[in-house]
Design a protein around this nucleic acid. Sequence first.
DNA 1: GTCTATATCATGATAGAC
DNA 2: GTCTATCATGATATAGAC
Lengths: 193, 193
Amino acid sequence: MPRKHRVADPREQVLASALRLFTRRGYFNTSVHDIARHAGVSIGSIYHHFRDKEDIARSLYAGLLAQMVERIEAIQARHRTTRARCYALMEALFEITEEEPEAMEFMLYAKHREFLPSATPVCSSKPFAMMREMVREGMERGEVRSMDPMIASTCLFGGAMRLIMARLDRVLREPLPSQLEAVWVCSWRAVAA
Amino acid sequence: MPRKHRVADPREQVLASALRLFTRRGYFNTSVHDIARHAGVSIGSIYHHFRDKEDIARSLYAGLLAQMVERIEAIQARHRTTRARCYALMEALFEITEEEPEAMEFMLYAKHREFLPSATPVCSSKPFAMMREMVREGMERGEVRSMDPMIASTCLFGGAMRLIMARLDRVLREPLPSQLEAVWVCSWRAVAA
DNA sequence: GTCTATATCATGATAGAC
DNA sequence: GTCTATCATGATATAGAC
């Protein structure tokens, strides 16, 4: 849905269009001209707001990660036990996937190293680090069996993450929230003390 | 390691070079000239053996999936119980990741939809279907709790798959086989009857 | 079957008027 | 800050000799 003439906030409009086009066709199948057309701005305007094409992707990625960090912090503020926090996080991940699949896909599934050489892989981004820390705390409290925190968080959230990927790939038909209980039971069993 | 002059089987040599370059730099950051140079053959030779660049990726992908299917069949032939089969499969996946990380990465991590519009997503490929079927059989035998087979197989292998991804991203330091027991205990707990 | 040389084209990025 | 017009590069793919 390309905007026709003037655009309120060109920068945001460009980021929104880039997110859509990058996830639909991929980064390399999307030209800066495509983004300009879709966003309803000119090439010149884009290059005024962003250094280059890579900078668009970088800004997008940073913004989405920051949003994610905020959500995790909100969850940590609302719940105290590790079990409740992890459940709420899994629920949130499923909801975000349904409501903003493109955001989720860009964060998770895009191979950022291909077009963001400087960016660290997703697994080592702050949100993932927070998930690992959450699980590590659970071990201290005796809620989670004692083991390597990396293994524990991967096993706890791995099923959910793979299911999210399957959903993004349209391999899974049912909306994720309807599967939450089943997945949670399996996931928590995997690591519960 | 580009070969200097004549090459035994140019087709195989091209596929091997493509696998290396695609995984190191990404599909779109690799030109056909790069592949030619690395494989020690000419552009003309490449276009004699392959229809176009996409055809190289397609052949590579199909070959790797076929190999994977063979390995799974071998495991099914060697083991009878679902538990033993799944364990052997996880072990094999970990070993393959260490021994042929590029093959694993190309199959799993590359976003094939970007450059293989016709290919189905990895999750719906034959090896993944075989994994789901393996788990479904386990339910009939009473080894695995009764639930949606898609959920069960995702929860059973999700942790291992995510760990493989973390290893390919060099986020995980330790070789995967050394983590096998810990991951297996968690994974089997998740779905065991 | 393999090679070199080349056609064709799209893309990222810039210049410079308004 | 936004726009149009344009440049320069490097890619895919082909032609045609050997």
